[in-house]
Design a binder for these strands. Structure first.
Length: 221
DNA sequence: GACCAGGCACATC
DNA sequence: GATGTGCATGGT
């Protein structure tokens, strides 16, 4: 299993190069982006983050001071703005009350405990929590998503209906707990997902074709 | 106009 | 435990 995962990693890296994730300037921006990007394209998230930046609200206290409607209006381009305004506030309140307002210090605490605490915040699921821990906190936890399930299941490495924790364990049980590796591997899986679903379901001539012969958004028959 | 995008909570069976 | 639904904008 380790060798198969690393071969996929090597192929993707050779094809697309390092992805330099997460696209955000500060840990706080990364954490906010992790919520905003839930089921949403990154381009729309960027608009929302630009709005927050432009309004001088991209920091814990200034964002926490916003009324629901004000926050929702700023993040509108990211979609689900009422839901996400609530989820962001839940995260901010948690960081303020449990984390003492110090995001980086908070994320540096015991990994299993921090993960469990963050999963207890309403609106933060496993992908969002692992993204915050890995990309904002530089902690070794693997991030999985819909692309990951497609990649694994189409290579017979997991069931098509595999749960999140099952996929995460698959990576973490077979790969070293290496932040740089986890960072790049997840980013490359997403990058490969874009590449394959945009042009054509069957990616002819792709450097990954022998490893990833079929990708389309809907499982190919 | 249909389909998709770096999910998640909640209701229901 | 599995399955269905609401949430919403913007690109292709």
């Amino acid at each position: 299993m380790r060798d198969r995962l690393l071969e996929i990693y090597d192929r993707m890296l050779a094809a697309f190069g390092p992805q330099y994730w997460w696209p955000g300037d500060t840990p706080f921006e990364v954490a906010v982006g992790a919520v905003l990007t839930q089921n949403t394209s990154w381009r729309n998230v960027e608009r929302a983050i630009d709005n927050l930046k432009g309004a001088g609200r991209l920091a814990l206290a200034p964002m926490l001071a916003l009324a629901h409607d004000e926050l929702a209006a700023l993040i509108r381009p990211a979609g689900y703005f009422n839901v996400k305004a609530r989820r962001l506030r839940n995260l901010l309140v948690h960081l303020h009350e449990v984390g003492g307002g110090d995001l980086e210090g908070y994320l540096a605490g015991d990994l299993a405990i921090r993960r469990r605490e963050l999963l207890g915040v309403n609106g933060l699921g496993p992908e969002t929590v692992d993204s915050i821990l890995l990309y904002a906190g530089n902690r070794p936890t693997f991030v999985c998503d819909a692309y990951t399930r497609r990649l694994l299941s189409r290579h017979g490495l997991c069931r098509p209906a595999a749960g999140y924790e099952e996929m995460r364990a698959l990576f973490m049980d077979h790969l070293p707990a290496d932040v740089a590796l986890y960072n790049e591997l997840h980013a490359l899986i997403v990058r490969t997902g874009y590449h394959h679903c945009k042009p054509t379901p069957r990616c002819e001539g792709c450097p990954l074709a022998s490893l990833l012969p079929v990708w389309g958004a809907k499982p190919a028959v």
